[in-house]
Design a binder for these strands. Sequence first.
DNA 1: AAGTCGGGGAC
DNA 2: GTCCCAGACTT
Length: 347
Amino acid sequence: MEKTEKSDFKYIGNKLLTWYEKNARDLPFRQTKDPYKIWICEIVFQQTRINQGLNHYTNFIERFPDVKTLAEADENEVLLYWKGLGYYSRAINVHKAAQQIIKDYHGIFPREYEEILKLKGVGKYTAAAVSSICFNGRIPAVDGNFYRVLSRIFADGFDISNSKAFNYFSELAYLILPDNVGDFNQAMMDLGSEICKPKNPLCGECPLNQDCIAFLTHTISQFPVKTKKIKSEGLKLKYYFVHRNGEFLVQQRKDDFIWKKLFEFPPEISEALVPFIKSVKTVNHKLTHKNLSIEIYNVEVDSEEVWKHFIDENDYIITDYESSNQKSFPKPLENYIGNYQTAYRIL
DNA sequence: AAGTCGGGGAC
DNA sequence: GTCCCAGACTT
């Protein structure tokens, strides 16, 4: 059996580039090769749809326009700009990486793939993306789009949930890799999100449909192959919204679990203080969006004396509706605060 | 090699 | 409801 030469399928990559010249999405980060901006963009859009993260990206770049500004910023302010995006370790890591660039690279963004890879929160995908887009690195930025597009083009049944999928589909990507790898990587993103979609792909409009084995054999629905993952058990959380005269108590989470370093309401209150609270209302916030249910006890404290007890005997932080905007809360709690603020102002 | 981390949109 | 998204990190 003759070994397949890499150049045999390179025309596919070139055909994709031709399509990309006419059909590239007009996105803010497409007009720059500043490695800082491309890096931030890649981090923001990890596991995140473009429409969902665009405002965050724009605001983040506006507030932290370069490595130095980001490195010198306070971590909580970085988290504030990440509010609502999810995967908050990305914000923590991106902040650390900026300091890493100042310390280890004299503030100059590293050009080599291996060096970029050393940055906190930067994995093989992101390193490849920055390297190819900003420094002409010849490395495919293999992500979920690559898995899907390549498995269809080659009608390849390799399980994309397999840990080895990254290496496997990297090999396939090299088969079709054209000269302009930076544009190629972005073209694969656009093709994957606009044409070669997970469900109901628009094969009729696909520039590669005559090169796609799955399309030609009418087996598109069979690719990619992905084994199902067992979903974890639902998470139940309980909070006390302890408030008085428009002020309420919060504390900051650790970084070892969900919602890293975000602010939350007290998850418990001391038994001794229970008799002194004015009223307790249970509000069932059915934030079951995933498998998450949150129970919030609305605790209004009547006397100044008891209120001070709460503060003195715990490490809670007093905040109010106005200044809570300067802290990053999990989305469900942010919604709760917003709703309660409305009610408070009306009453 | 498997689990985990958020939130939103499509279906 | 389920699935998926410009993945990386931990164990």
